[in-house]
Amino acid sequence: MKLVTRAQLGWPASAAPSQASTRGVKIHYEGTIVSTKLLTDHGLCLARWKAIRASHLANKTENYSDVAYNYAACPHGYLLEGRGLGKRTGANGNQSLNQAHYAIVGLVGSSGLTQPTNAMLSAIRDGIELLRKHGAGNEIKGHRDGFATACPGTPLYAWVQKGAPRPTATTLPTEDNVPLTDADLTKIADRVLKHDGVIKVPGAASSNPTWTLSSVQTEILTRLDKANASIAALSTANSKLVDAVAKLAADVGDLDPAAIVAELTRAIESVEVRLDVTDA
């Protein structure tokens, strides 16, 4: 478990009311736009968690004593302490719901970053098991269970309905949702540069030269996005070439080979396509 404590966040002990036990844990999401930049910058995750606490403390209507959740989970697999152990949550909707379950929020939203990573799911599972060791019962629910809300969003709630299993394979969030096992991803990682046993990705930012399997996955997805954009540009280029040939057929009486080459060359030079994808 990768735990970031309140002390590490620079927060004092929680002023939330104490509660020694609950029936279980409820899972939440942010229900707003969450930037996908969190996927590649853990510092942004910590900043967002601090901003959530600040906004809760500033909410005079709810009059929160602390950030509403017991814990948060970020895309990098860190469990971020909120109210922590033995504290009543303020997130489930009303006092009776808060007394029934502790609360963990995944740092995903209703748009932008909506798909929890396997690392995030594992961190949520870490939080569930930690809370169970300190008074939580076995129930795992979504915020929408018992309260009229879309929280925790479709992807997280589907996972909750399956019993919130700890992930055993890495899944690419593609349209077809094709699963990759850790062994598969290791083979992919083996194709990128390695130094002293530390995976380094060609073209990666120098500020983050070390990559876990999860971050290699994110890098691969980023490069696939670039490849798809380049393919679209190549498709446009192909259309221009077809138009150029059609123009030649219409405008050149005798199809002089030199004229065809010259016209095609001009068409090619007018299209700037760069495949900015490193062969990993």
Score class of each variant (00 low, 15 high):
residue 248 L to I: 15
residue 134 H to N: 15
residue 3 L to M: 13
residue 242 V to P: 03
residue 54 A to L: 06
residue 212 T to A: 10
residue 37 K to T: 07
residue 239 S to P: 01
residue 14 S to F: 00
residue 278 T to G: 08
residue 184 D to W: 00
residue 226 K to E: 14
residue 86 G to I: 03
residue 234 L to N: 14
residue 148 A to G: 04
residue 117 T to I: 04
residue 33 I to G: 06
residue 188 I to S: 05
residue 211 W to C: 04
residue 175 E to M: 04
residue 157 Y to M: 11
residue 161 Q to A: 10
residue 121 L to P: 07
residue 107 L to M: 15
residue 78 Y to L: 01
residue 55 S to G: 10
residue 184 D to H: 09
residue 61 T to N: 14
residue 87 K to P: 02
residue 99 Q to H: 05
residue 53 R to Q: 15
residue 5 T to C: 09
residue 182 D to M: 03
residue 159 W to D: 09
residue 111 S to F: 00
residue 81 E to D: 05
residue 240 K to R: 13
residue 279 D to Y: 08
residue 117 T to C: 03
residue 59 N to T: 07
residue 280 A to H: 10
residue 1 M to P: 14
residue 156 L to N: 02
residue 5 T to Q: 10
residue 189 A to R: 10
residue 61 T to W: 00
residue 108 V to C: 07
residue 32 T to E: 14
residue 205 A to H: 08
residue 94 N to Y: 01
residue 33 I to K: 10
residue 234 L to E: 15
residue 209 P to Q: 08
residue 79 L to P: 06
residue 268 I to V: 15
residue 220 I to T: 12
residue 112 G to Q: 06
residue 42 H to C: 05
residue 178 V to M: 07
residue 61 T to C: 00
residue 90 G to C: 03
residue 35 S to I: 02
residue 181 T to K: 03
residue 28 H to P: 09
residue 38 L to C: 10
residue 266 R to D: 15
residue 189 A to K: 06
residue 265 T to M: 01
residue 167 P to I: 00
residue 265 T to D: 15
residue 269 E to T: 12
residue 264 L to Y: 09
residue 273 V to E: 12
residue 268 I to A: 12
residue 43 G to I: 01
residue 196 D to K: 04
residue 75 P to T: 09
residue 184 D to M: 02
residue 59 N to K: 03
residue 29 Y to I: 08
residue 146 G to I: 08
residue 54 A to W: 01
residue 149 T to V: 13
residue 72 A to P: 04
residue 231 I to R: 07
residue 39 L to N: 08
residue 12 P to A: 01
residue 48 R to I: 00
residue 42 H to G: 12
residue 130 L to V: 12
residue 258 A to I: 08
residue 211 W to S: 12
residue 273 V to N: 12
residue 123 A to E: 10
